[in-house]
Design a protein around this nucleic acid. Structure first.
Lengths: 203, 203
DNA sequence: TCCATAAAAGCACGATCGTTCGGCCCTGAC
DNA sequence: GTCAGGGCCGAACGATCGTGCTTTTATGGA
């Protein structure tokens, strides 16, 4: 049966709050003290749930990754194979960036923070990112094999460029506070898809 | 005449080292203690050159901005107007990202770190970024008015998408350690330019 | 209801944080 | 030769950091 014990439920609440906080101040800026205050726990009471701060950071990333899988990845594969599924992925991804956490997407924040700091946090981050890229590459590959995209489309290159659009969106929206960030992202995406689409009945 | 006094020269050395360090651990992760150790100064001796840590952070950004102007912006306008100048900008920008500092581009790092933290650091960062975007927009606008790019090309949209390519490159190179990051960026850039180019003698 | 166990708190530790202050050294002007 | 001032240091401050202990409180099965 194994319903969730008290410990597990508070730990989940901690991770929820920690992820929110980390999206605002960064994974490195996250502090046991402030997190304890935010969850109304004592420092030691909170700390008891984790082996170290580093472990907490890793588990925050894992928590965020599960969320991403739930609200982006899994629903996406419900869309019809090929281009529609690519579109669905993009739409859900960009919505995720705006709505998942108060601060920006935690993966984007953490990426530039930990790209030079060897260790388990970086490793987990790379794992999450590689996973995401792999899923995207697969989905684009399907669009090719379905005949929606041209044969010479390189799914990895597509994934690279789509990631770029998402990053530009994050940058424009969060730092520059550009109200047209999302519109711009959509236009860029449309251009990208257009350039990959098989010519509609040319012969 | 005003040659550089002792104080100014050590301050310059501090900013140099600080920028390097900040590119590795982030502007927020930058610490008076570690910076003092890196410059072989005492904490207080170093601190005497700045009003506060926040002031130091701002001046680091200003220092990096000057460097960017010197090695990217200024040489770029030496290239012939129009598409060649756009190309020059891209090439210099991407080289900057790989070679300017040991850690990634400090603006990229700082952008996701301070996008949610109101204050002078964020303000300076936005100023620098707006400057960069404006220059780029102008250069692309010239490519349009020179007839290299089609009339319906939106320079701001171009700038947005180019920023995306740069960010994707940073992400792929530094976090994912993708050896083909630069090649991918170049392909994306070529595709972007191609889609903007005026059709070569159609009539 | 009692008790074993889990969960949270309390307290303290060494270290480091940003910041301040008083004083020593060195240089250049008189 | 003296004196003013800039440049740098040593020491120290209160606060907070991550991390251990020991103790109290809450929980749930017998």
């Amino acid at each position: 049966m194994e319903r969730m014990g008290k410990g597990e439920s508070t730990k989940a609440a901690i991770l929820e709050e920690a992820t929110e906080l980390a999206s605002l101040v960064g994974l490195g800026g996250l502090t046991i003290g402030t997190l304890a205050a935010a969850t109304r726990l004592s420092k030691s009471g909170l700390y008891a749930h984790f082996a170290s701060k580093e472990a907490l950071q890793v588990q925050v990333l894992q928590y965020a990754r599960d969320r991403f899988t739930d609200v982006v990845l899994r629903p996406t594969v419900a869309a019809p194979r090929g281009e529609p599924r690519v579109r669905e992925f993009f739409e859900r991804w960009i919505t995720w960036q705006s709505t998942a956490f108060d601060g920006g997407c935690i993966f984007v924040d953490a990426a530039s923070e930990f790209d030079d700091q060897e260790g388990p946090v970086r490793d987990e981050l790379v794992r999450a990112e590689r996973d995401k890229l792999e899923s995207l590459t697969l989905i684009v590959g399907t669009a090719v094999s379905e005949g929606h995209f041209r044969d010479d489309v390189d799914p990895e290159q597509f994934a690279y460029e789509l990631e770029g659009i998402i990053l530009a969106h994050h940058h424009a929206r969060r730092l520059m506070r550009d109200g047209r960030a999302e519109e711009r992202a959509r236009r860029a995406f449309d251009r990208l898809v257009d350039s990959c689409r098989a010519a509609a009945r040319t012969a």
